[in-house]
Simulated scan of single mutants.
Amino acid sequence: MYRLDATDRRIMAALDDDPRMTILLLAQRTGLARGTIQSRLDRYRTEGFLRMESTRIPPAALGRGLAATVSAELDQHQLEEAMAGVRRIPEVLECFAPAGNTDLLCRVVARDPVDLYRVSEEIRLCPGILRTSTSVFLREVIPYRIRPLLDAPD
Rank of each mutant, 00 (worst) to 15 (best):
E73A: 15
R29W: 01
R29D: 03
L93G: 14
P98E: 06
R43Y: 08
R87F: 10
A68I: 09
D17C: 02
R64C: 08
E122I: 00
N101R: 09
R9F: 04
G100L: 14
T30V: 13
R51P: 06
F49K: 01
Y117M: 11
Y44M: 10
R64V: 04
L26E: 02
E81Q: 15
E91R: 00
P19T: 06
R88A: 10
T30P: 09
E94L: 12
G85D: 07
E91D: 08
V119I: 15
L32P: 00
D112H: 12
G65C: 06
M52C: 10
R107L: 13
T36V: 15
C95G: 11
A60S: 13
I57T: 09
R111D: 05
Y117A: 12
A13Y: 00
I23D: 08
L104E: 03
L66P: 04
Q28I: 00
T46G: 12
F49R: 05
Q38I: 07
F96I: 10
T46M: 10
L24P: 02
E53Q: 12
Q76H: 15
A33M: 06
A97S: 15
D115W: 09
L50K: 00
A110H: 02
M83V: 04
V114N: 11
A13H: 05
A110S: 06
G48A: 09
S71Y: 04
G63R: 11
E94M: 11
I89D: 08
G65W: 05
L41C: 05
Q38N: 13
R87C: 07
R64S: 04
R111M: 01
V114I: 11
H77E: 09
R51Q: 07
I89F: 09
V108P: 02
N101T: 11
E47R: 14
Y117Q: 12
G63V: 09
L116Y: 00
G35A: 14
R88D: 04
L116C: 06
P113I: 13
E122H: 14
A67P: 01
R40M: 02
